[in-house]
Amino acid sequence: MTVKELQSKLKLNALNEVGDTEVDGAFVSDMLSDVMAGAKAGNVWVTVQTHKNIVAAANLVDVPAIIVVRGKKVPEDTVQMADRVGVALFNTDLDTFQVAVKLFEAGVKPTA
């Protein structure tokens, strides 16, 4: 499934340009250190964090998309950073659990 297909299936609000990068698995955490240690390239990352360093962490481990949950407003510098590195950034009013369920129903599995 591509990032664009994922956006459509989960009805996510895109905050920047959405590419056709393939999504392979999901990683749920609100800690950058967890993501750097555990996320795999291709994972979509679900978090409540909005600081621009989430993009730096995602870029480091090649996460193609970040979903910010619970309707959190994402600062403009975070969106600009995501544009710069080519990470798709979404937000949604759903909470983490709801997004995780929808990801699973869409066929996205947890990272091994």
């Binding site: 990068t21 795999k40 390239a41 291709g42 480091l60 481990v61 090649d62 193609p64």
Partner: peptide, 13 residues
């Protein structure tokens, strides 16, 4: 280490 984990073609850390 970080570059070997990437999947995006041509991308490097």
């Amino acid at each position: 280490h970080f570059t070997s984990r990437l999947r995006t073609p041509g991308k490097k850390i």
